[in-house]
């Protein structure tokens, strides 16, 4: 796959060309965007639709632990949960991936081996991204070498906010080259980009640079995934495919904790990007506690009783 879609090759020819391109994108009206996201949030998803949505959401989770206190034991437990989320019900789908720091990637890879669950590793001096490019690339190399199937990189928000868009772009291109077979998720840290216009521009930089996924946030700042910023990114991948034929995934991460929230995001996917994205290959949730809530709701649907936290596993 070419790193830059041919339709937009000119856009990244120079810093000024890229700036012109990004500032030529249609603006975003915040109130209208949020109103649309909220309106889709009022969809009432019941019975069969809810069952479908819960299983789909479970299968889309990048089950995540990104703590300084992570240990091989913690990661193995998480991996076990990803492979077998509900020990009482073997029909429960597996999560899409486990998401860990690079130094835990090998542990995670061993733990999920043969299950189909992918190993995602954050890299590029996650979460701040404040390191020299060769350090970031080494980080990526390590993770891939350790068995990561997917790399979650962070963009250089400093460069973005100071207007050096081509630097942001080129860094993504370089990381992508380092990924090899691994799929690349590009994290914008939307809470730091602050405006919807910036999120739209960042989305296009990421897509032009060859991202396989665009991802909202690290989970490490105050504001992470919201229905509105995810809706905006879904519009971006929709428009990008319409223009280039290239499909790109979306991953909201951080702050999605309940089944109700997850279902709302799936409604956004369904009615914005469309059903082609209703697939773990193209949409992910970066989450940890969400899984247990989905499992409890799943139990409720199958038994008719409300479940409780003691009936799902704590990992």
């Amino acid at each position: 796959m070419p790193t830059t879609a041919p339709a937009f090759a000119d856009a990244t020819a120079s810093d000024s060309a890229l700036r012109r391109f990004l500032f030529g994108l249609p603006g975003v009206d915040a109130v209208g965007l949020e109103a649309r996201a909220a309106a889709l949030g009022t969809r009432s998803i019941k019975t069969t639709a809810k069952a479908y949505a819960i299983d789909l959401a479970i299968s889309m989770i990048d089950l995540t632990t990104l703590e300084g206190a992570d240990t091989p034991g913690k990661v193995r437990a998480l991996a076990a949960k990803a492979v077998n989320p509900d020990p009482t019900d073997r029909t429960t789908p597996r999560t899409a991936a486990v998401c860990v720091y690079p130094d835990m990637a090998a542990t995670a890879a061993a733990a999920v081996a043969g299950s189909g669950v992918k190993v995602a590793s954050v890299a590029t001096a996650f979460p701040a991204g404040r390191a020299a490019l060769d350090v970031k690339l080494a980080d990526v190399r390590d993770a891939v070498a350790a068995g990561a199937d997917e790399i979650d990189m962070v963009i250089d928000r400093g460069a973005f906010l100071s207007g050096r868009f081509l630097k942001v772009y080129e860094e993504i291109v370089a990381v992508k080259a380092e990924c090899g077979e691994a799929r690349l998720k590009v994290i914008f840290e939307t809470g730091e980009l602050s405006t919807y216009d910036n999120i739209r521009r960042a989305s296009w930089i990421g897509m032009l640079a060859g991202a396989d996924f665009i991802k909202t946030s690290t989970g490490k700042v105050a504001t992470n995934a919201t229905p509105a910023n995810t809706l905006l990114m879904l519009e971006a991948v929709r428009d990008f495919r319409a223009a280039t034929g290239v499909q790109i995934g979306v991953k909201p991460a951080g702050g999605i904790r309940t089944t109700k929230d997850a279902v709302k995001f799936l409604v956004l996917v369904n009615e914005t990007a469309g059903e082609d994205w209703l697939d773990p290959h193209w949409f992910r949730f970066g989450a940890s506690s969400l899984l247990n809530d989905l499992l409890m709701q799943r139990q409720k649907l199958s038994t008719g009783r409300y479940s409780g936290p003691d009936y799902v596993t704590v990992d």
Partner: peptide, 9 residues
């Protein structure tokens, strides 16, 4: 027509 058909609510 979508895989995600909303059940009557």
């Amino acid at each position: 027509a979508s895989a995600f058909e909303y059940a009557p609510a």
